[in-house]
């Protein structure tokens, strides 16, 4: 049972207004698309929703979506492995850190979109190029976070461990490694955004296969309903994956308190 007082408090909650804003936008979209705009170019949300069956019935669309998910998963796993390995190697050695961190930051700052055609040239139009491009976007934030996680350790932790007789292995196992864990998970969250961006850029770029093929076909056929549907599904996948890594990060990204 909801009392009027509780209801009023609920109404005053910002989340309530937020929901209202979203609903208002969707309704505005629905009305404008239905009555004022050209149906070749935009489709009302109700039509997009009811046409999901048709979208998934289009031959090749489900498998293209599955392939994209697969590319994201492999790309993310590879980014995590490569990022953690290089991040540790660079973070644990002072000379390596001073030498290679500027190079890593430089590479991370490069406009990677310019080299997308090279990836497709080298790896082809299949999954390999998309995974590779996803990894090239995803591994740097993980690398940088891991290196930072093993670097910025309070000296007093080393002092106290050493004063209790810790060996180098002990320092690595009981101080450096646990200290790194939260940064690693923060890196994973940023890495996921990177992998999503890289994979989707490559998918959209290659117009002869996968998602990019369907977005260009739907665009050429002025099939706004299916195009919006496909983009919505991809956006939903991105939101869901971002949310999963965000939750995992919240769980692990700090030491307990």
């Amino acid at each position: 049972m909801v009392t009027t007082g509780e209801l009023r408090r609920l109404m005053r909650h910002p989340g309530f207004a937020r929901l209202g804003v979203v609903i208002l936008l969707v309704v505005a979209w629905e009305i404008s698309a239905r009555f004022f705009l050209d149906r070749d170019f935009i489709s009302p949300p109700s039509t997009v929703l009811t046409s999901f069956g048709e979208l998934f019935g289009t031959p090749g669309v489900p498998s293209a979506l599955w392939l994209t998910l697969y590319e994201i998963a492999i790309g993310f796993a590879l980014s995590a492995i490569i990022g953690a390995a290089i991040g540790l190697a660079v973070g644990l050695n002072r000379l390596a850190h001073q030498s290679f961190m500027p190079i890593i930051l430089l590479l991370y700052g490069l406009p990677q979109i310019t080299i997308l055609p090279i990836f497709v040239l080298v790896f082809g139009i299949g999954a390999a190029s998309k995974i590779a491009f996803g990894v090239s976007h995803g591994m740097f934030p993980i690398m940088i976070a891991v290196a930072a996680g093993v670097q910025k350790i309070e000296p007093v932790y080393f002092d106290s461990a050493r004063s209790m007789g810790a060996s180098r292995w002990h320092l690595l196992r009981y101080v450096i490694f646990p200290h790194m864990i939260p940064s690693f998970f923060t890196g994973l969250r940023l890495g996921m955004s990177g992998v999503l961006l890289g994979v989707l850029l490559a998918e959209l770029y290659v117009s002869t296969a996968g998602i990019g093929y369907f977005t260009s076909i739907f665009t050429q056929n002025f099939d706004a309903t299916k195009l919006i549907g496909l983009v919505s599904v991809l956006a939903a996948i991105a939101i869901a994956l971002n949310e999963v890594v965000r939750r995992v990060e919240l769980r692990y990204a700090r030491w307990r308190d």
């Binding site: 999503l196 989707l200 850029l201 959209l204 260009s216 983009v231 956006a235 991105a238």
Partner: peptide, 8 residues
Amino acid sequence: IPIILFLP
């Protein structure tokens, strides 16, 4: 969200 998805 990767807003590049809006490009199509």
